[in-house]
Simulated assay, not measured.
Amino acid sequence: MANPYAGEVALVIDGQAHVCKLTLGALAELETQLGEDTLVDLVRRFEAGAYASRDVMALLVAGLRGGGWRGTASDLLSAQIEDGPVGAAKAAAMLLARAFAPPP
């Protein structure tokens, strides 16, 4: 079960529950993959609703890796994510928000 106070988000892929978390290592990997100097532009895109599917995929892969998953982005290409693309986008947005939320 995901702990939102620890920045975790639950994601169900192919019927199996996973815990996602943007750790420092996962964030560094995300910056490299997206070619961003900082994550501020990514946050701005999500806040404006101007994100791309590659942003969602990159966030989910980084979050899954931060949660201990050892798969790759290609593993998600044919996977069933619970609630489809909308559920994936919501999970990605929650990951980003929780990664930078102040502690309770």
Rank of each mutant, 00 (worst) to 15 (best):
M1N: 13
A2T: 07
A2P: 05
A2V: 05
N3I: 07
N3K: 13
N3D: 14
P4W: 13
P4F: 09
P4H: 14
Y5K: 06
A6Q: 08
G7L: 09
G7Y: 04
G7V: 03
G7H: 06
E8R: 01
E8T: 12
V9W: 01
A10L: 11
A10T: 06
L11E: 01
L11V: 08
L11D: 02
I13C: 03
D14S: 11
D14R: 01
G15N: 02
Q16E: 15
Q16G: 00
H18E: 12
H18M: 03
H18S: 05
H18I: 03
K21F: 08
L22A: 00
T23F: 04
T23W: 09
L24T: 01
L27Q: 14
E29W: 09
L30F: 11
T32R: 11
L34E: 01
G35R: 09
G35I: 09
G35Y: 02
E36Y: 09
D37C: 04
T38S: 15
T38D: 15
T38F: 14
L39A: 08
L39I: 04
L39E: 07
V40I: 12
D41E: 14
D41N: 02
L42K: 01
R44L: 02
R44E: 10
R45Q: 02
F46Q: 03
E47G: 12
E47Q: 05
E47F: 00
E47T: 08
A48I: 07
G49N: 10
A50Y: 03
A52K: 08
A52D: 01
S53C: 07
S53Q: 15
R54D: 15
D55W: 12
D55G: 02
D55N: 13
V56L: 10
A58K: 00
V61N: 14
A62S: 15
G63M: 05
L64S: 00
R65S: 10
R65D: 06
G66N: 09
G66L: 03
G67R: 10
G68Y: 08
G68I: 09
G68W: 04
R70F: 00
A73E: 07
L76D: 10
S78R: 14
S78A: 15
S78T: 14
A79G: 08
A79Y: 08
I81P: 05
I81E: 00
V86L: 07
V86A: 14
G87T: 04
A88T: 04
A88S: 13
A89S: 10
A89L: 02
K90N: 04
A91I: 09
A91G: 01
A91D: 11
A91H: 09
A93R: 12
A93T: 02
A93G: 07
A93N: 13
M94C: 03
L95F: 01
L96K: 02
L96T: 01
A97T: 11
A97I: 05
R98H: 14
R98M: 14
R98W: 11
R98K: 11
A99G: 01
F100T: 13
F100P: 06
F100I: 09
A101T: 02
A101P: 05
P102L: 14
P103G: 05
P104Y: 03
P104K: 11
